[in-house]
Each structure stands twice: as C-alpha cells, then as structure tokens.
C-alpha cells in the first residue's frame, strides 16, 4: 500500500517523476529540441556573419553583442514544446487519470516546467557553443558564469510558465505552438540586436522598459566582464515577478479547467 506523505514533500517527488516522464518523451522526439537549436543558430549566423560587418555597436564586437538576444530567442523556441505538450496532456484522458490519483495537483504542470528548463539548458549550451565557433569571445570568470546561469534559468522558468498558460488556454496543440512566436520576435525590440538609442522614440521607450532588455544587458555585461550595475537587480526582479504571476495564473486555470 502507498504511504501518505506530507503534501510538501509530495510536490517535489511527484514533480520529479513527472519531469522524467516529459524528458523521456521529448528525448524520443528530438525534432523540437533540434528546432530550438537550429532556428536561433541560423539567426545568429545571419546576423553575425552577414549583418555583423556593417553593424556598428560601439565598443563591442557584433557577435559578442548579439549572443544574449540570441539566447532569449533560443528560450522562446525551446518553450514552444512545453506549450504543445501541456495542451496535449489536457486534451487526453491522461489528465483525468493524474487528477484522480493521490498526487500533488501542481505536479503535472511543474513536471512539464522542469523538463522544459532542462531542454532549454541543453539548447542554450549548444547555441553558445555555435557562437564561440564563429567568433564569440566571452571574458566571464567562473563566478560570472554562475550568475549568468542563475539569471538565465530564472528567465527560462518565467517564460516556461507563460508557455504553460498558453498550453492550458489553447484549444488545439497547433495554436498552443504558435503563441511563443511573440517571445521570439520581442528580442528584436530590445537591446538584443541594436542599441536602443538608434530606435524611433515609441519603440525606444518600449525597448528600454521591457523585461528582455534588462536581462540581455545584464547577461551581456557579465559575459564580457563589464560592470552590470543596477540592471541585474531589475532583471532578476522581472523574472521573479513573471514567475510568481504566471505560476499562480497557470495553477488557477488548471484547477478551474475541470470542475
């Protein structure tokens, strides 16, 4: 017979089991992961090797400048699979099976999120590797890399929870899969590819104040061993805030979806 554990321990162990389930299925279906690597890599090659020659971004090498923006695009691609797989789960009998079992309610969702973050980390590492192969030269020390990893993982969590909401809200897997497209485009209207000072006024205002800019600026500063300043705090707060809101919304939708 199963033993009754305290709900808190259960959330962790159940989420862990669920994330392994999601990882196993996504490793068998490498298309999504390949796309998450391939698409941002193409953008990077285009910008780095073709536009890079005419881009003037001040003291930076253009490839060094765009890597953080490319990473955010990688994350946008990688979370698409989470939106689709959440949606798949919801529309099939398996959601009812899980919900009628004595497991932590949020574990179904956190399992998807954990697996998505792991996929994100793999995709990002490969994309950074490609960047290095075409001339990206980070100067970060070990401590800086840890900070970069923390900052990016927090961002991945934030974006994944948004993807989960889309997966829950969408009627079909197809529409769930198109939504993260916006997350892919938004880095263009940030400090990711051109300095915000070069943008027309309205776009510039948006770019300066949207969360991606602070995350990109901080990542870039850390990677190139330059002072990150107060931007780092803003970046962390943005991610933490998005996680708090989107987690709450996702769990609410999940609970309300079936009653």
């Amino acid at each position: 017979m199963q033993t009754v554990k305290s709900p808190k321990i259960r959330v962790f162990s159940d989420s862990w089991v669920m994330s392994q389930r999601c990882l196993t299925t996504s490793l068998r279906n490498p298309d999504a992961l390949a796309t998450a690597i391939f698409v941002p890599a193409i953008v990077m090659l285009l910008f780095g090797l073709i536009f890079g020659n005419v881009m003037d971004v001040g003291d930076y090498n253009y490839i060094d400048f765009i890597v953080p923006g490319i990473i955010l695009q990688t994350v946008a691609q990688a979370v698409t699979a989470a939106a689709i797989s959440v949606n798949n789960d919801m529309n099939k009998g398996i959601a009812d099976r899980f919900r009628s079992m004595p497991i932590a309610k949020s574990a179904v969702l956190t399992g998807h999120v954990l697996a998505a973050v792991m996929r994100n980390i793999i995709a990002t590492a490969v994309v950074v590797g490609v960047a290095v192969s075409i001339g990206f030269r980070p100067r970060a020390g070990f401590a800086d890399w840890l900070l970069i990893a923390g900052l990016l993982i927090l961002y991945m969590l934030a974006v994944t929870w948004i993807a989960v909401i889309c997966g829950l809200a969408a009627k079909t897997p197809e529409s769930a899969g198109t939504m993260p497209f916006l997350l892919f485009v938004l880095p263009y209207i940030s400090s990711g590819f051109v300095p915000v000072e070069t943008m027309p006024r309205a776009l510039r205002w948006f770019a300066e104040n949207q969360p991606m800019t602070s995350i990109i600026d901080s990542t870039r500063a850390l990677m190139l061993d330059m002072p990150a300043g107060g931007g780092l705090r803003t970046a962390l707060l943005w991610s933490a805030g998005i996680i708090a809101v989107s987690f709450t919304v996702a769990v609410q939708i999940y609970k309300r979806k079936f009653s």
Binding site: T24, T25, G93, I94, R97, M101
Partner: peptide
C-alpha cells in the same frame, strides 16, 4: 478527496496512456 483517491482508480472513456512512453 485524498483518501478517496488512494482507494480508487479511474479508467476513463479515452485511453489514458502516455503514447510517448
């Protein structure tokens, strides 16, 4: 609900298997 869930199992109208596993 938790006590009920520990003693039951549901096989719903649509096969509740993970097709990827």
């Amino acid at each position: 609900t938790e006590r009920v869930r520990e003693c039951i199992s549901l096989t719903g109208q649509y096969a509740a298997v993970d097709e990827g596993l």
